[in-house]
Nucleic acid binder design. Sequence first.
DNA 1: CTGAAAGCGCTTACAG
DNA 2: CTGAAAGCGCTTACAG
Lengths: 372, 372
Amino acid sequence: MSSRDKIPNSPAPKRSARGRPSQARDHQGRARLTITDIARLAGVSKKTVSRVINEAPYVNARTRSRIEAIIAEHGYEPDPQARGLAFRRSFLVGLIHDNPNPQYVEYLQLGILDALVDRGYYLVIRPCDRRSPTFLADMRAFVERLRLFGVVLTPSVSEDEGLAKLLESVGCPYVRIACARLDKPARLVLTHDARGAAAAARRLAELGHRRIAYISGPPLFRSSHERRAGFTAGLAEYGLELAPELTVPGAYTYESGLARGRELLVLSDRPTAVFVGNDEMASGVYSAAHELGIRIPEELSVIGFDDAPIASRIWPAMTSVRLPVQEMGRMAAQKLFATPKEAAKTSAAEFTPALIERQSTAPPFGSRPARS
Amino acid sequence: MSSRDKIPNSPAPKRSARGRPSQARDHQGRARLTITDIARLAGVSKKTVSRVINEAPYVNARTRSRIEAIIAEHGYEPDPQARGLAFRRSFLVGLIHDNPNPQYVEYLQLGILDALVDRGYYLVIRPCDRRSPTFLADMRAFVERLRLFGVVLTPSVSEDEGLAKLLESVGCPYVRIACARLDKPARLVLTHDARGAAAAARRLAELGHRRIAYISGPPLFRSSHERRAGFTAGLAEYGLELAPELTVPGAYTYESGLARGRELLVLSDRPTAVFVGNDEMASGVYSAAHELGIRIPEELSVIGFDDAPIASRIWPAMTSVRLPVQEMGRMAAQKLFATPKEAAKTSAAEFTPALIERQSTAPPFGSRPARS
DNA sequence: CTGAAAGCGCTTACAG
DNA sequence: CTGAAAGCGCTTACAG
């Protein structure tokens, strides 16, 4: 629409042409208050006002409260850009993500914002593609140009060592949300995916299932391996093993769940239960079962992972494994604000998923119910 | 975790304590290039470099290309914060939203970013609650403190006249995504929800349905009314009317869809088809039908709206009405960059939804198929 | 076509 | 406990 941006990354603003006042004024035409105004009003220097704003020590208690009163009275708020320039960093936190699950990303954002809003920080979004040839360069430009205060990383990009090293070397604080101890505690929000998967395994074993299938996520996602490992461990507690022919690779997509589901359910000795790496794929398994006229849960028990909205909306409502995504986002952002001292002795924020039981599991077809 | 932020909105950064270099240097210890360095390297003044960065006229072509070469060679990128301070506005675009649909918000973000990334602008997220007593004050603080370049508004907050007036008065450019002509063309990405709903009506009418129910969204959403109006109009083309007892209010939630579905499907003369205000509620209707043993589409045709992921994952796959959300986001952001001249003669970006036919519709139970 | 000066609204270092 | 000076990295307004 505009020809203003022929040179990428070098936009040429024409604010005045767009009718915005060229001075710091609000809509009444009142000049916007600056630190200088507050200083004048309080009869002190800018530096003293600055000390109050930044909660610096060595300010006379009376002077401080007088200045605070004036600040409050006028609703003065320091300009983040000016502070940022002087501080050599911004009041922006970045979210770098490549998670294919929209509601995961959305809830994470809400959680991060919970932690930022009251602190006067803001959230800048940056989706990415780890496989892009310019991935690291792009991330670096993002972080450096904006002089980000810090950055939150979600799976699977949180598992990228190249990115972590880059951020470290550039001096940009970061927190990884991950399902394995990939980093030091101060930088880690750890989800125990394996434990959630183990709970799913136990549930199926307790119901009496023996022919149990597993549809994994893609190898690029660490969670694929953690969930599988946890599921295997859970089965082992009951002396069960994952049959190789019933262990198949998916891609965390509906389509892959549908395809793997069709293959599994057509087997002569088909499984009586299936644990699926995420709900998205699990809904594909549902469709496969419907196609083949196989009833859930009577003829096939299904457990998913994520407790995505679809889990409770699909019919019959699906048993799944839930992680408190919003809370995880809040913790991740919070960790960014730890002082070095706090960071040194902090532990990782750890989250154990909960098995949310609904209507998609039952004892294996033809067996006697083990519970009732 | 930290005690650094006792005064809300007045964070006290301690970057040096966190180990970041106190000067503009990259991780090799090289000082980060500034406009002064480029000027020195090119043997010109800062102002001339500035002119090149901003694509200002009146720069000798040779001088310009020499400077551009030096900029490219060193990978110099002007500091957005410094430019922002001087320009009195930032390179940030805000997304203000209160849409309950995560994937809607996510795809919108992706679309907005499509338009921003190459221009060197960034996206800041701000969820909100129109009913909060501090709503307008919060939005104002957000927009003014960050000196946003502009802001994108999504339904239903895009329908808030108080917010629009505030933005206007503060001089913050904005674009509304809305399903009615709520603003001047330059500020509007218009979705023709009514047309999509009409298409749904025609489809059901053509299949031979006469007892047709409608579950609306909440009155606070303009789309509730547009969709209903469009649906009514579509029926009218076939001489049909929406029976009052089959027209019920929902809330755009799964739960409300489930509740209204139960009520409708239990009627002695129950509908043979239902058009539901969004897919989220439609999935509730699916559950109600399942509970009652009513088969979709044989005994009940269902059409939703949004073409949310669940529409294609649920069984049987649901016919729905699709809007190109990502494209809408891109257009909205793009409109923010229009010059005043362009804005004056621009028209609204308009989008007509498409009816995506899947497996949830069929001729009314017991009737002879009208088509085959 | 180009540049020296002043300024955007803050903070850092240095004095006192 | 407080302040005057210089600076963050850019741009505006004014000269030439």
